[in-house]
Each structure stands twice: as C-alpha cells, then as structure tokens.
Design a protein around this nucleic acid. Sequence first.
DNA 1: GTGAAAGCGCTAACAT
DNA 2: ATGTTAGCGCTTTCAC
Lengths: 329, 329
Amino acid sequence: MATIHDVAREAGVSIATVSRALNGGPRVNEATRRRVLETAAALDFRPNHAARGLATGRLGNVGVLLPDVANPFFGAVLAGIARASQERGFGVFVADSREDATAEPELAGRLSQQVDGLVLVAPRMSDDDVRSYAARRPTVLVNRLVDGVDGVAVDAAQGMSDLLAQVALLGHRTVCYLDGPAASRAGTAKRAGLSAAAEQYGVDLHVEQSQAPTFAAGRAAAQRVLDSGCTAAVCFDDLLAWGVLTRVRELGVSVPDDLSITGFDDSLEEGMVSPGLTTVSARNREMGTIAAGMLERRLRDTTLGPATEVLRCNVVVRGSTAALNSRRR
Amino acid sequence: MATIHDVAREAGVSIATVSRALNGGPRVNEATRRRVLETAAALDFRPNHAARGLATGRLGNVGVLLPDVANPFFGAVLAGIARASQERGFGVFVADSREDATAEPELAGRLSQQVDGLVLVAPRMSDDDVRSYAARRPTVLVNRLVDGVDGVAVDAAQGMSDLLAQVALLGHRTVCYLDGPAASRAGTAKRAGLSAAAEQYGVDLHVEQSQAPTFAAGRAAAQRVLDSGCTAAVCFDDLLAWGVLTRVRELGVSVPDDLSITGFDDSLEEGMVSPGLTTVSARNREMGTIAAGMLERRLRDTTLGPATEVLRCNVVVRGSTAALNSRRR
DNA sequence: GTGAAAGCGCTAACAT
DNA sequence: ATGTTAGCGCTTTCAC
C-alpha cells in the first residue's frame, strides 16, 4: 500500500509537500498540487488513518456503544449515527454490550482509545460512569440525559402523558400500564408522564410489570392485564402491546371494543397488526442523526457548554383505541 | 491520557520493559511486571491503539460493510460479527451503504485503512470489486460466495428446494413464486432451487416479481398472486409473505385452506402472524459469528487456502401451509 | 512555495 | 532481565 513517501518520490517533491497538497494546506503551488493529486490517485494512495491519528491526535472516528445491534430500536439509532457520521467523513466504531451493563465499562474504555468522540446508548449505565466517560472524551448521550453531558432524547414523559390524555378523552377511567424492564430509565420517564396525566384526568392507573419489552412477554402478560379489569391497556412499547393484543384476541376479547391498547415507538409498519396500533412515535433514527451532529459540533469546539435536545413525541392514533362504549361499565 | 513513558517513569523502568510487561512479553522479572502493571492501573493507562497499529501493522480491528444496519436481517449478522470479534479482542468498524451499491467502493476503501480484515455483506457488489478488496485485505463474504474468497452462506437453493418439496408433498401442483429484488444474488439461488424442485416434483411454477422484500410490497402483490390461480404462494422472504398473507385474508381468502403461503428467513416470532408462517430458517446471526471466526483464522495465517462454509437451511413447517383440499381443483 | 526534521505512542530488534 | 534505539506513516514547525 502506497505511502506519502511513494507519492513524493513519484511526483518529485518532498513528503511535506505531499501532505500539504493532500490536506488542502496553504502555500502550495497550484501546478504542484495538481501533480501530487494525480500521482496519488495513480498510486491509489490512501492516507493511513492510524498514522494521521498519531500525528494529529484526531482519529476521525466516532464510537457507538449500545446494548444490542440486532434490536431494531438500536439499529435505527445506529443507522442515523452511521449515516450522518459517514457523510462528515468520520468512521464509525460500534460496541455491542449484549444488554449486559457490566460489560459496558470495558467496552467503552476500549472504544475510547480509537475514537475522537463517543455516542452512548446505554440506558442502564450509572450516571457516574456516564460522567466519567464524558470527562475523557466528547460524549453524546442518546435517549437519556445526564447533567453536564450532551444528549438527545425523546420526551417520553410528554409522549405518554399526551397518549394517556387521548385515552382519557375516549372515556377510559381505569387504565392498566404494562411496564417494561424495571431498570430502564425510559421506563421512569414513561411512568412519570403517565402518573401526571392520570392525576390530571382523573384516571385510575393500575401498573403491571413485565420483565422484557418483547412480543412474547406481551402475550404472557395479557391475562394479567385482563384480570386488572381495566378498559384500556397502555404498554411500555409496541412489541409488548402487540403481544397483548394478539393474545387477548385469542382469548375472545375484541380490540378496541372490549379493550383499547396502545404501544410506544411506532415501530410497526402499517397493516402488520390489525387493528393498527395507537402509539407514540419515537424517532430513533432521528435521534441518531442528531447525536452525530451534536458530537461533531462538540469535536469542533470542546469549550462549548453542554447541549441538550429533547424531541417531542407525537401520538399516532390508529384503530386499537376507541371510545369507552356502553357495553362496559 | 497516560503514555508508556509516564508509566515507565513512575515505575522506574524503561519504556521497553513497560511494553513487554503489558504485552505479556518474555524475559520480564515477575516483580517488575507486577510493579509495572500496578502503576499502569494506577495511572489508568490505556495503550494507544493508533500507535500500536502503526508500530505493528496490526490494527486489531475488523470492518463490516453492509447495506443497512437498521434492517433486522443485517442487524442480526452484525450482532454475530460484533460479539464474536469483541470476544477475541477486536474492535468493530461498520460502514452502512444505505443500500446504495455505488457508495460501496468508497466506503470499503476507507474502511480498509483502519482494519486488519473486512467482512463484506454486499449482495449487489460485483464479483470483480469483491476480488479487488479481497486482494488488499483479508476478506470474508457473508451470504455470498466468490471464487477464491473466504465466505459463509446459507444454501438458499437447497432451502427453497426443500421447501417446495414440502409444498409439493402437500399436493400443490400450481405454485406462485413471489420474487424479491431482481438484482439480488440470493434471489438467483432461490429461483434455481425452486426451478430444480419444481421440475423434480412436477410442479407448475409461476413467477411474480416484487420490487422490494417488504411487508408493504407483499400486500401490493397479493392480488397478482391470487390472479395467478395458484394454490400455494412461495415468497422471497418472510416480510413479503406476511404482507401477502395479511392482504389475501382481508380479501376473504382463507389461509391455508384456500391458499398456502411460505416465507424465507424465519424472522417472525411465534405468534406474530397467525397462522404461523411456514418458512426456511436463515441463521443470520450464526453467519456473522462464523464470518468473524473465518476472518480471525485468516488474519492468523494469510497463506491458508480460501475457506468456504455453506449452512444448510431447515424448513420450518407451521400453519400457513396445508394439504391441497378437495375445495380446490 | 518547498524541504528538512522532529515527534505523535508504541513495538521490536539489538545491546548490555 | 532490562535499556537503547530505530522506525511505523503522517503532520507540522521552522528554515530556506
């Protein structure tokens, strides 16, 4: 693989000139520059990233730490980050913690050796750990906010609150919330939004726990939801809602006539589940895109104050919710 | 950030000793080693990857080029690669081509600067381009085989062949194949497997095209499938099959009584679609894991002959297929 | 406008 | 067993 020395020799100049020409540096004769560029292309010269990184201290890479790349939720975030970063000429490192928070410090540490900045999608990491990584390297948090650290998040509390308002508007007064993993921070926000709205609208909120935010867990929890006697089930996310919906229908319960159901994320395509799921749009890919932008801004100027962006979520009303009808008390 | 010089000074040894101690090199006094390790830990020393890469020529990273990280199919492959590589101490670089084959050369070129080896999940890249990357750096292909290049793939032809055999066994003699994107290589293998089996079992195979392998495209194609008058529909993948299934039921067609439907990939969880989809298991994550293993083997010894692994696919029979019954001719 | 040379942090001979 | 030193490929003063 050709180095700048090869290019320099071939073009009859010094390596310094090659470097300047390649990097658009100043004080290079236009003719020389052209010649250098041509021979570089002819030799298929590719600057060695590692060497450049050593010399400049800038690696030109960003790192992404997330719990599970195979999960479409994180996949969407990663896609947003990767595409935005690539466009800006950054390489993207990814570390998958397998949903194992104890593996995160090790991974984050290794990541940060090779990148200029970090995007952390680590819902279960402690605030202190987050701050310690942020102290080392420019860091942006996704779907989570920690004081003093850049971050972009969806306003889950507002989303759930608006959603419950919508449900209350339909006349429901006893609502069951099927929660996700207890440790999740998103869960805290969602519960907070729900509680606030429940109080405001005089809704009696019954909370059921579910260990995982999966389709299977939704099915498993369906009976408990029914037993709660509520007229509407608000679920932690779409998969859970889908599971509940599927199972209760098998049990002969009509949706939305007998039970209204809602999800969160808007991750299901139109028609995948019927009736369509009333849900909250979570804008994951957009969070990724924004995170990449924030990180680049921070890399440009480390002295900036911490930036924070909170995305509003919109309630998407579909067929899985309906007005409380006379068949129910 | 501490360097080996800091550690050396602090521990009262030379940088060479530090390097040896850290890398488990030979001829280091046990006491010295311990002391070095301790001061390194105390200083929170992290070896600089770029510098090490420069010195050794080995970066300790693998690169993955794929069309779309947000697509669960590729997400699963990436998860397999990432986890297996991390375990072996490799970092993972990812490049997302946005399903745009023209962007691949540029991305692959940039990737290869920073990695020791490449995993290519690039169904649409030309064989020549594949070979040219493989010539530069150790390369492993996923879900595709090219002469002389390491690769792991699922035997889609065998899978489709077995699947059609199963369908034929149920008595179906007119089968509609709803194909995916024309450019896809996986599609070629699938068509080949189907044709062979169709001939063998005396099945009349009718091919319908669909532009994308998506749920929506499946819905859109449903009417054409029905118009073909076939008694069974074999689809390019699960999403397409799901779309067809959903749409034909809306049109009042009973599955599997009036129409048997099959998918490919086994990507839907139990119960997500009902009746359960008869399909072929594609083992994506496993391909990723195997690819990472092959790459590591190749990095260890570049002189090895090309290795190739073809995974058998198993037909998974569920409720969406049934014996041709008397209601149909 | 161009070249010489130092040095980024590390490894790997080679000396001692 | 440990230290010295020469690079790895590149950027970046500083001379010319």
